[in-house]
Amino acid sequence: MTNLEKYVKAFTDSFEISEDQVSALEYQSIVQWDSVGHMSLIAAIEDAFGIMMDTDDIIDFSSFEKGKEILKKYNVVIE
């Protein structure tokens, strides 16, 4: 599984949505991505990449695209 596939899967599993929905996703753009859903998403991403994100990054993780940028700090490159 590539990093991109793992990343997409974290979104689809957490929010129970299809793959074609994820790329435009932003925080609170769908009902599932509320504050509770956000914590589930972060847990899924941490599990997928074996990382432990800082609180500031969890707060800043505001979209599918922004998440890619943040994950670079943890040496996770999504391409």
């Binding site: 914590m39 847990a43 941490e46 599990d47 432990m52 609180t55």
Partner: peptide, 13 residues
């Protein structure tokens, strides 16, 4: 609060 935030990562899962 800080320590609990990290602990909850495990416990929530």
């Amino acid at each position: 609060i800080n320590i609990t935030q990290y602990a909850v990562k495990f416990m929530r899962r």
